[in-house]
Amino acid sequence: NQASVVANQLIPINTALTLVMMRSEVVTPVGIPADDIPRLVSMQVNRAVPLGTTLMPDMVKGYP
């Protein structure tokens, strides 16, 4: 099973992602692959992302 990117904390709308905000976890449904975490750094979320939420491609501005 492939690990996905999961919010490690509440991420407010328009926040630029940092490594501490994300963790990898095997979840269903599958979200953004954990391998993409380095690419996500400094990209902004377009909505508030609660703790434990799987990051989906449509939540991150400019992804992929």
Rank of each mutant, 00 (worst) to 15 (best):
N14P: 00
D35F: 09
D58P: 07
V45M: 06
L17T: 01
D35Y: 12
N8A: 14
S42L: 15
N1M: 15
V5C: 07
V30C: 15
A34C: 06
N14A: 08
V49A: 04
N46Y: 15
A7K: 02
V26A: 12
K61P: 09
A34V: 08
N14C: 07
I11K: 01
V20Q: 10
P64N: 15
L17S: 01
D35N: 07
T53D: 08
A3R: 06
K61T: 12
R47Y: 09
L19T: 06
V27F: 03
T28H: 08
D58W: 14
L10C: 15
I37P: 01
G52S: 07
M22A: 01
E25G: 10
Q9I: 06
Q9N: 08
P12T: 07
M43T: 04
A16D: 04
Y63V: 05
V5D: 01
V60N: 00
P50A: 13
T15E: 07
T54P: 08
P33G: 06
T15Q: 09
V27G: 03
I11G: 00
P12I: 04
M22Y: 02
M43N: 04
A3D: 14
L17Q: 00
R47F: 08
M56C: 08
Q2M: 14
T15G: 05
A3E: 13
T53A: 14
R39V: 09
L17V: 03
Q9M: 14
N1G: 15
I32P: 00
S24I: 13
V20N: 11
P38N: 11
A16S: 09
P33C: 15
V26W: 12
V49I: 11
T15V: 10
P50K: 14
V45S: 05
A34M: 06
D58S: 13
M56Q: 12
N46W: 12
S4F: 03
A7V: 10
A48F: 12
I13L: 12
V41L: 15
R39D: 05
V49N: 02
N8L: 09
K61C: 11
G31E: 00
Q2L: 14
M22W: 02
R39C: 12
M59S: 05
V49T: 04
D35S: 13
D35M: 13
P33F: 14
N14Q: 08
R47A: 08
V49E: 02
D58R: 09
P29M: 05
M56A: 07
L17M: 08
S24A: 13
A34F: 08
P38Q: 12
Q2V: 13
P12D: 11
T53W: 14
M56R: 07
Q44F: 15
L51C: 06
P33H: 09
R39M: 11
M56I: 08
V6H: 02
P38D: 10
M43G: 03
D58Q: 09
I11V: 12
D36L: 14
S4W: 02
V27Y: 02
A7H: 01
N8D: 11
I13S: 10
M21H: 06
D36M: 13
M59E: 03
L40E: 00
N14E: 08
V45Q: 00
A48Y: 08
P50G: 11
P50T: 11
D35T: 12
V27P: 01
P38C: 08
T53V: 14
V6R: 03
A3N: 15
P64I: 15
V60T: 01
A48G: 07
R39F: 07
T18I: 04
I13D: 09
M21A: 04
T15C: 06
E25S: 09
N8I: 06
P33W: 06
M43R: 08
V41K: 06
G31A: 03
P29T: 06
I37W: 03
L40G: 00
L55H: 01
S24L: 07
Q44P: 05
T15R: 07
M56E: 06
D36P: 00
V20H: 13
V49M: 05
N1H: 08
V6E: 01
V6L: 10
A48H: 13
S4M: 02
K61L: 13
A3Q: 08
G62N: 15
T53M: 15
Q44G: 04
R23P: 02
Q44A: 15
D35P: 10
P64H: 15
M22E: 01
G62L: 11
T53L: 11
T15D: 03
A16V: 11
N1E: 15
T28K: 06
L51N: 11
R23H: 04
Q9P: 01
L10S: 11
T28Q: 13
V27C: 06
S4P: 00
Y63I: 04
